[in-house]
């Protein structure tokens, strides 16, 4: 396990940096998608794995980020980094009141509340035609430049590296976060919320803060997806995407940093392979997921750890 720990990250980085030159256009786009989902799943694991708050409405913030960056890019043609920042901030801002109310509840109640709020936001995106384009969404989102007058990001490889860098920055940020005093407090809350409260601090404050951070990171993922795909649509806020993010986290390994990325990879690849055989791929993904929940609760990372430890 030790050499894997040391060289694994380096090797992964090298592969991710070189891969774009060895992939066909479609494959590169798949890899880019994968990174976006990895970031999205990672943000969910911050609240779900590290704090023990299972959100069933995380897609809402992905979608908010997507709409935010799409609107900024279409109407103001701002450079991409500004659109990303705008999307992330917008998502975090909306998450604040939602988190404030939802954290009054815990466990299943919390999950249901986040789902309800997400459905509310989804309906809003669906009905507010003037702003969101309703069910058609916003199409023609441009890939603008890196800064005003700076290099263009239209070329797929350039955009891939933008997303790779965004993902790496977010990953390092999350890593620092879970190892910080705040991050350890989150884990303590996950372990025993009542004890934490009797030690002198209100756990809810921590939960709201991490909920907003996770939403902003999900918003960043969404903000990346809009220019990458060229559109933002209500589908990005749908409960199905929230559920899929949960699946990625569980499949990869809850409460770990690399788990969500591995889960996203498995999910995207399985979907890619299955969908080339059948349009009903969800049937099999769902069944695989059910089996994993029953037999592999720690996910792939959990199983690997047990194997290496034994």
């Amino acid at each position: 396990m030790a050499p894997l720990r040391r060289w694994g990250p380096v090797a992964t980085l090298v592969v991710l940096a070189v891969l774009p030159w060895g992939l066909a256009r479609h494959q590169l786009s798949l890899l880019t998608d994968l990174l976006i989902f990895s970031l999205f799943a990672l943000s969910l694991d911050l609240i779900m794995g590290y704090t023990g708050m299972v959100s069933f409405g995380h897609a809402a913030y992905f979608g908010l980020g997507a709409y935010g960056s799409a609107l900024l890019l279409i109407h103001f043609e701002v450079p991409i980094p500004i659109a990303l920042l705008g999307g992330a901030l917008g998502a975090g801002l909306v998450a604040w009141p939602v988190g404030y109310i939802s954290t009054r509840a815990t466990g299943i109640y919390f999950a249901m509340l986040t789902l309800a709020f997400a459905q509310l936001l989804y309906t809003l995106a669906y009905k507010w035609r003037a702003l969101t384009g309703g069910s058609d969404g916003i199409a023609g989102v441009p890939k603008t430049a890196l800064w005003w007058g700076g290099p263009s990001l239209v070329e797929p490889r350039a955009f891939y590296f933008l997303i790779l860098v965004s993902f790496l920055v977010a990953f390092v940020l999350c890593r620092a976060l879970v190892r910080s005093p705040f991050g350890r407090a989150l884990q303590a809350i996950r372990e025993n919320e009542r004890k934490f409260a009797t030690l002198g601090q209100d756990p809810r404050r921590f939960k709201v803060i991490v909920f907003v951070i996770a939403a902003a990171l999900a918003g960043l993922a969404g903000a990346l997806s809009a220019p990458f795909r060229g559109f933002a649509s209500p589908e990005a806020m749908f409960w199905l995407l929230s559920g899929q993010a949960l699946m990625m986290v569980i499949i990869g390994g809850i409460g770990t940093l690399v788990g969500p990325a591995i889960g996203a990879m498995v999910f995207v690849l399985v979907q890619e392979v299955l969908s080339s055989y059948t349009e009903h791929w969800m049937l099999f993904t769902g069944a695989i997921f059910v089996l994993m929940v029953i037999f592999l609760p720690g996910g792939i990372v959990g199983a690997a750890r047990r194997r290496f430890a034994a």
Binding site: L177, P181, A185, L199, Q201, F206
Partner: peptide, 23 residues
Amino acid sequence: ELSVLENVRIAIQAKRGGNTRLL
């Protein structure tokens, strides 16, 4: 699931502040 040391540390930080240090 936290280490013995971590348990005590959380208690100290909860009292004296510092648990909110993000990074």
